[in-house]
């Protein structure tokens, strides 16, 4: 496969890496930096890598590496978006290969699920009415309803990097900023850690660096959820409860606890269910293993929680409108909306 070397060139080689000089080495050096020893260049490259690591690890948000990251994001982000759009049919093609048996099994399972859900829905109609009333009251009282910008996942960081981050195709031009909550139909996805003009990076709750304040649905106890850094079937979160005496029960739903002004997480977003509870002799507190509601291996459409009346180049979904105005999608169509954000 490799082309054999041209013997004519072999006399042009320079000094080599302390090994017998071969055609290969001489060839490599020819035409570039012949005066500089190869070893010096290699040393410089290693040193350069270490320098970048040091600068980035030591520097804060305004380090030169941060700026380089933004520049690269602005260039590579749109390329990633374009590529993701181009291969989207490929992603959907997987469904065509589902076999008849699988489909039959799916129908049976869904029918069973449907009847179960229907009976449940009939039972809870009364509760639901009361809840709707209460919900409406709360919302009018403090405007906890939020607006969403819909986005699609265009890039997923490889697990080899040991961090669980994804790129979405909405950025600051759509009003997406750092420290905004990202959710999907099923529940909490993560938070925005950086945004360029057209893309934003999202730290998934599964990441080991992610800590989310959580609240147990059954008894309102609060705790902290930490990611384990693994996606796929084994993607789990650890819940440390603040109150040591409380034991979470299996199947209990954990929702976000929320922080001031909804930064970085708004309150009341479901995260997952309690899978098991364990305690270690060393620690007083009990820990619960949480099975997230979101399937992180097949993330596609997500919503970013933005302040109400955000205007950008994308449609802003104002989920529950304030008193008087109609609920539904409200389009904010204005370009270059860097100044379009309107905080409550």
């Amino acid at each position: 496969m490799a082309k054999r070397l041209h013997p004519r060139i072999s006399n042009l080689k320079g000094p080599s890496l302390g090994r017998p000089v071969t055609d290969d080495d001489g060839r490599t050096r020819f035409g570039r930096d012949r005066g500089v020893s190869s070893r010096t260049v290699l040393g410089l490259l290693v040193a350069a890598s270490l320098t970048v690591i040091t600068v980035d690890a030591a520097g804060g948000d305004d380090s030169p590496v941060g700026r380089a990251r933004t520049v690269v994001g602005n260039v590579i982000g749109p390329i990633e978006s374009g590529t993701a759009v181009a291969v989207r049919p490929l992603r959907e093609a997987g469904g065509y290969f589902t076999r008849n048996d699988d489909l039959r099994a799916d129908v049976a399972r869904l029918a069973a699920q449907n009847s179960q859900l229907r009976s449940a829905a009939e039972q809870v109609s009364l509760d639901r009415n009361r809840l709707a009333e209460l919900d409406g009251l709360t919302r009018t009282a403090n405007e906890t309803g939020y607006a969403l910008v819909a986005a699609r996942v265009v890039g997923m960081g490889p697990m080899q990097s040991f961090s669980r981050t994804v790129t979405i195709d909405a950025g600051s031009s759509s009003g997406v900023r750092e420290d905004m909550t990202v959710l999907s139909n099923d529940g909490l996805v993560g938070r925005v850690i950086s945004a360029t003009r057209t893309t934003a990076n999202v730290l998934l709750v599964l990441d080991t660096d992610s800590v989310v304040g959580g609240r147990l649905g059954s008894n309102m106890e609060i705790g902290f959820l930490r990611g384990r850094g693994v996606t796929g079937d084994r993607g789990r979160l650890d819940l440390d409860l603040v109150d040591n005496s409380v034991t979470p029960s299996k199947g209990d739903v954990v929702v976000t606890w929320g922080s001031q002004n909804g930064v970085p997480y708004v309150a009341g977003i479901p995260i997952g269910t309690v899978e098991s509870v364990y305690s270690t002799p060393r620690e007083l507190a009990k820990r619960a293993v949480i099975d997230p509601l979101v399937d992180f291996t097949s993330l596609d459409v997500v919503g970013v929680v933005v302040p109400r009346r955000t205007q950008g180049d994308r449609i802003v979904l104002n989920g529950s409108a304030k008193s008087g105005s109609r609920s539904g999608a409200q389009a904010g169509v204005r370009d270059g909306a860097d100044e379009g954000e309107d905080n409550r």
Partner: peptide
């Protein structure tokens, strides 16, 4: 050879470190 390879490696590695959604230390 290593000199060309290391140069390509440095550039590719840095791009992988900086391109979204990378979040680790560059």
């Amino acid at each position: 050879g290593p000199q060309f390879g290391a140069t390509v490696g440095f550039c590719a590695g840095l791009l992988l470190d900086l391109a979204p959604p990378a979040d680790h230390v560059a």
